[in-house]
Design a protein around this nucleic acid. Structure first.
Lengths: 330, 330
DNA sequence: GTGAAAGCGCTAACAT
DNA sequence: ATGTTAGCGCTTTCAC
């Protein structure tokens, strides 16, 4: 059963002009609220437009102005609970600026990251904001020449593009400081195995541990997919090799939750046998048991800031503050 | 510090034609892989296109064909953990069909639902899929005449638009059946206070209770926002008025998790004093404590099915199967 | 204050 | 197999 009724021909600016008895240009002026127009003419045109159900074509407008009002949002996976709040922040800020949001999922694949940017270019996007895990700096810098680009959680050299990042260094330092408080601390870290340019957290961990005089901790940094099972698996490996580890700093909350599962599965208790600190502060982290101690990122604000940086059109680096949320795993 | 370098002029099909020494039409044919073209000419054109870094303009193409390759995805709030998985399903299916996805958040506001559809129309969207909570049937039916539309979890009368829904009736029946197993069952329900056309779950609950001979349960149906705090609050009210309630069926997992919190806050135990069954099966529901028994919706598949229905172009209603997942709250 | 003309980049229809 | 013409709906430029 076909459901499409005969296509209604689009009402154009020309139709409105005819209906109102003016030229098309006058209609365009009225619609865009430009000053050079007689008030009564304007009213007449607006009335005609409403009467006809006129809807301006975003395509034609973009074609003419060589710029559309879409903003590309590029994430690795919207189903990853980290991104939805960011996406909502992006959306709200974009909507406030009169822009629509096109979403891309890349799964951190360099090719798909590139495809997403290319698609945004093909649509003459107003700008691109996103998380890039597989694209090298120079490629991003190159694209930044063709389209306003703001990268999240990543620093690009020499101001070629704006960036908005969270303060991983401070967050990691605070997490390590908390874990270091327990008697005879022996810390390990679960790092993400995904991404070319995200060794920031690992470096911050090493630095923070050094500040506490923990010696070389790098052997107790294990990698895995930044997911719950990934965290469980990585923790299993970590604790097999280093049973004395009693404090785990996880790349993100998902790995942190996975770590708790692994400790419990070994018959251990959290935080008695091993404390865990995550990163991100996902909604679920409050409700898991035991509730996860974590470094909070304001994901919604991150999204808003990405659009703010995009529209302000300056190649600045913004650093967003994070905060340690102590809960039951420490 | 300004970051925009001088805008590079767009490489057009005309430039490629000149470079390859052919007409624009030939370029168009080569690019779209149409048959009526000599193989070597095609090669030459493709080479020229690559050399020049040609990128087709989606705007111009859409303008000419009166149809763009974007699909509008309309949800109430992408930050609500129910939607991301749906969005990913929509995205994957759309990408496979060569379409981009424009995201809209409406917060279940009728005006914003309308704005979202209007924007999709302005972009000559290939189609619209979405969750509509505030828009009346006739308005949706009206829009379905202008653009392919698939509605989620909602039945539109007389085949004006395709729909893909989850089998709430079966899911609710299974949930009630499970709750009814306990000794002296006294069931209550937490219903969502949002949405014009979502009384399906409430009706299914009443029907299922009647089938078990529970008499009139409607007084034990309380409403609240479909969120964790909303569930907690609604449960508080429910249990104040009906302390004998020992089984709660929640509109969704968020309310279910909230219900558990409320029971615990009263000093009760779950499921000893009150069992809880949710709906959706969010990722977090596995990890909350006690783990939530729920009716599972395949959210990713729901997303894929929405696009499938859209592209198949038939005004069919699809009903997706759900399954009861027994965990620790029953 | 208003209208007419030009053209954004592409593809469908029609030549050749 | 290839080129030419026309036009999608809008805004910019320029006349009046």
């Amino acid at each position: 059963m076909a459901r499409r009724l005969p296509q209604i021909k689009r009402v154009t600016i020309e139709d409105v002009a005819r209906e109102a008895g003016v030229g098309r240009q006058t209609v365009s002026r009225a619609l865009r609220d430009l000053p050079e127009i007689a008030p009564d003419t304007r009213e007449r045109v607006l009335a005609a437009a409403t009467r006809l159900g006129y809807r301006p074509s975003a395509l034609a407008k973009g074609m003419r102005t060589q710029r559309s009002d879409v903003i590309a949002l590029i994430v690795s996976d919207i189903a990853n609970p980290f991104y939805p709040a960011v996406a909502r922040g992006v959306y709200d800020a974009a909507e406030a600026a009169g822009c629509s949001v096109v979403l891309y999922n890349t799964d951190a694949d360099p090719d798909r990251e590139r495809d997403a940017i290319e698609d945004a270019l093909a649509r003459s996007a107003r700008g691109v904001v996103g998380f890039f895990y597989g694209t090298p700096d120079d490629v991003l810098a190159d694209y930044a020449r063709s389209v306003p680009l703001v990268v999240a959680d990543r620093e690009l050299p020499s101001d070629v593009a704006a960036s908005v990042s969270n303060d991983f260094a401070s967050g990691t330092a605070a997490a390590v400081e908390l874990l270091a408080r327990r008697p005879d601390p022996c810390l390990g870290m679960l790092d993400s195995s995904v991404g070319v340019a995200v060794d920031e957290r690992r470096l911050a961990f090493v630095t923070a541990c050094a500040a506490h005089g923990f010696g070389d901790v790098s052997a107790r940094i294990v990698q895995g997919p930044p997911t719950i099972p990934g965290g469980t698996e990585a923790t299993r490996r970590l604790l097999s090799a280093w049973p004395e580890v009693n404090g785990i700093f996880a790349f993100n909350d998902l790995m942190g939750i996975g770590a708790v599962q692994a400790v419990l599965a070994r018959g251990g208790a959290v935080p008695r046998d091993c404390a865990v600190v995550g990163f991100d502060d996902l909604e679920m982290s409050t409700y898991v048991h035991p509730a996860l101690t974590t470094v909070r990122i304001d994901k919604y604000e991150h999204g808003r800031a990405l659009i703010g940086a995009l529209l302000s059109d300056a190649a600045e680096s913004t650093l967003l503050p994070v905060s340690l949320i102590g809960r039951a795993t420490t």
